Computed example of a mutant assay.
Amino acid sequence: MDDEDDLPGIELPVPDPGEPLATPDTRSGFVALAGRPNAGKSTLTNALVGAKIAITSDKPQTTRRAIRGVLTRGDAQLVLVDLPGVQRPLDSLTGRMQRRVQSEVREADVALLVLNGEEGVGPGDRWIARQLADASAGGRLPVVIAVNKVDRIDRERTIRTLMAASELDVAEDVFPISARTGKGVDALLDHLVQLLPRGPFYFPEDERTDQPRHVLLAELIREQVLRRTFQEVPHAVEVAVEEVERPKDDLHVVVANAWVETPSQKGILIGAGGKMIRNVGTAARKELERELGTRVHLDLQVKVRRNWRSDETLLDRLEID
């Protein structure tokens, strides 16, 4: 990977000084989850928050936005920022993703480097560790490492990976965890809480994410596309929810578009006789019903927009910063 120039950070939400959400005795802060694609950052975010706020799949580029999950426990509130996997920018989409990673890490209170225990420590992990080391120069940014997916490897491989993680020389604390089973997650959480600065809560205690509802619903639909398509199609698909109505107390109507870049991709996503898009719609509807708490009628259309990943106007519309 090539080093990228520093870019200006973004302003993070701050509590309304007229309506404090907690006392000064509380701890609160932003924890940025960095790592390569498929390290399990989204699964870990969901496990810590205790709710599904980030979609998961085995495809790279699953996470395209910085997704904030809110965990309030006693007198501490962690705002977990699930970041896109760090990779070389190839187009406007991935360029935006990487700029967001950089800005969020710079503004974080703690950085959590998530490693894929199945794959071990590779060049990409070492590159990310160097960036975090630069950001933590002078002790400004505490860095913690979590070696994920240890439930899938034996004890010997776990020990080797933990030793390799320690040799990255970016963090004193390395935790073996399984975001999928919960193994080691409580110990990691306890440690992160201790690293938070003292300050008022950023969000109400019952809030789980600041993600707009229409974005979360669109992501739940895209997740089902990712789980059923292969090769280039998953990377070329984005979903936008255009309308959400509630004509009855027990029914939501969701209108959404699935954008692809070529007619051939559209054909694959629709499938022979419409079979693929029906399967996607059926599975997505179940996820939407779980999220909305009512029956859902999903109107899902597939549309072509060539080179949308380099279309700045559409990326703005899709709210991919």
Rank of each mutant, 00 (worst) to 15 (best):
D190M: 06
E19H: 12
G271V: 04
N257G: 06
S92C: 09
V86M: 12
P142K: 05
R278S: 05
K286C: 00
A108E: 07
P13W: 07
E172H: 07
K286G: 08
P263A: 07
A32M: 06
K303L: 11
L300H: 01
R157A: 14
V233M: 03
P20N: 09
V170Y: 02
E232N: 05
R222I: 07
G182K: 11
F175I: 01
T229F: 12
W259V: 15
A218T: 02
V241G: 11
G124R: 11
A258R: 06
L216G: 03
V170M: 01
N38E: 00
S42H: 04
L192G: 01
P200F: 12
G120R: 09
A236C: 05
R306W: 12
W259G: 00
V233K: 07
T94H: 01
L78H: 02
L168F: 05
V79S: 02
P123R: 14
G273S: 04
I55D: 07
L315Q: 09
L12E: 10
P263K: 06
D210I: 09
G18Q: 12
I177Q: 03
D154C: 06
D250Q: 07
E245G: 08
E4N: 03
L196W: 04
A284P: 00
I67C: 08
A54E: 07
D169G: 15
T282A: 15
G95R: 13
R246H: 11
D210M: 09
P13F: 07
V114S: 06
E238A: 15
P20W: 14
P123G: 13
E261D: 08
R68A: 09
T161N: 14
E205S: 09
I10C: 13
G117S: 02
P204K: 10
A66Y: 04
D210K: 08
L33W: 01
G139K: 15
E118D: 05
R73F: 03
I53K: 07
T229A: 12
G120M: 12
E243V: 02
L113Y: 05
M97E: 10
